[in-house]
Amino acid sequence: MSAVPRWLLRHRITIEEYLGDSSTAPLYGPPQQVRAFVDEQTRAVVSPGGEQVTSSSTAYAAPGTTVPPLSRVTLPSGRITKVIACLPRDGGGLPTPDHVEIQLQ
């Protein structure tokens, strides 16, 4: 199987890519809507810096979706959260749907 079927990506999330910090606040790119499947479940994950943090939800998106850590995400519920990590999930030819896992605070 190649990519996760689009009909499984039932939700729309809004991503504002983290661009860095200014002298007054974080800077974000323009909002982009992305199709995803959102699972609001709390679990422990490891951040890119190596520390264990709590993820309150996970979004699954199509392969090729890239979201830098600290980007701002608005979930279908209206809750605004930040990206912990964006991880490609490739089955390596196995019959599993390839996708991107976006771990959220």
Rank of each mutant, 00 (worst) to 15 (best):
H11I: 03
E16W: 01
E40K: 11
Q105T: 12
S55R: 04
A85C: 07
G50W: 01
S57K: 02
I13A: 04
S56Q: 14
S47C: 08
Y28T: 03
Q103L: 14
P63Q: 09
T42W: 09
R79K: 14
P63W: 12
L27W: 12
L19W: 00
L9N: 07
T14N: 03
P95G: 06
W7C: 02
E16V: 01
P26A: 07
G92F: 05
R10D: 06
G64M: 04
S57I: 04
I13C: 04
V34K: 12
S57L: 01
L8C: 01
D90K: 12
V100W: 05
S77R: 05
Y60T: 14
L70Q: 13
T96N: 09
L75N: 03
D21R: 14
P30N: 11
T65L: 05
R35Q: 10
L104Y: 05
T58A: 09
P30C: 02
V100F: 05
S22E: 06
R72W: 02
T65Q: 05
I80T: 15
L8H: 10
L94C: 07
E16T: 01
S22V: 05
S47V: 04
L104Q: 06
Q41G: 04
P88V: 06
P69V: 01
P26Q: 06
A3N: 08
I80R: 15
S22G: 15
Q41L: 09
S77N: 11
T74E: 08
Q33H: 07
R10T: 14
V83P: 09
T96R: 11
G49L: 10
R35K: 11
S22I: 04
G92M: 09
Q33L: 06
P48S: 05
C86M: 07
K82M: 03
S22W: 03
G29N: 10
L94A: 15
T54F: 03
A36L: 09
G29F: 08
H11R: 07
E17A: 15
V34H: 11
Q32F: 01
S22M: 05
G50A: 06
D90P: 02
R12K: 13
V4D: 00
K82C: 02
A59S: 09
S55M: 09
W7H: 12
A36N: 11
S22P: 12
T74C: 00
E101H: 06
E51H: 11
S22Q: 10
P68G: 09
A85T: 15
V34L: 13
L27S: 11
T74Y: 03
W7F: 06
S77I: 12
V46C: 02
S22H: 07
D90S: 11
V4E: 02
L75R: 01
M1E: 10
I102W: 02
P63I: 05
R43G: 07
R35G: 04
V67N: 00
P69C: 03
R10A: 10
E16A: 07
I80L: 05
Y60M: 12
A36H: 07
E17K: 15
P30R: 14
P5L: 04
Q33E: 15
A44V: 15
L87Y: 01
G64F: 00
V73R: 01
P63C: 08
A25S: 14
R35L: 04
S23F: 12
V4P: 00
E16M: 06
L75A: 03
S55N: 07
G93A: 10
L19K: 15
G49P: 02
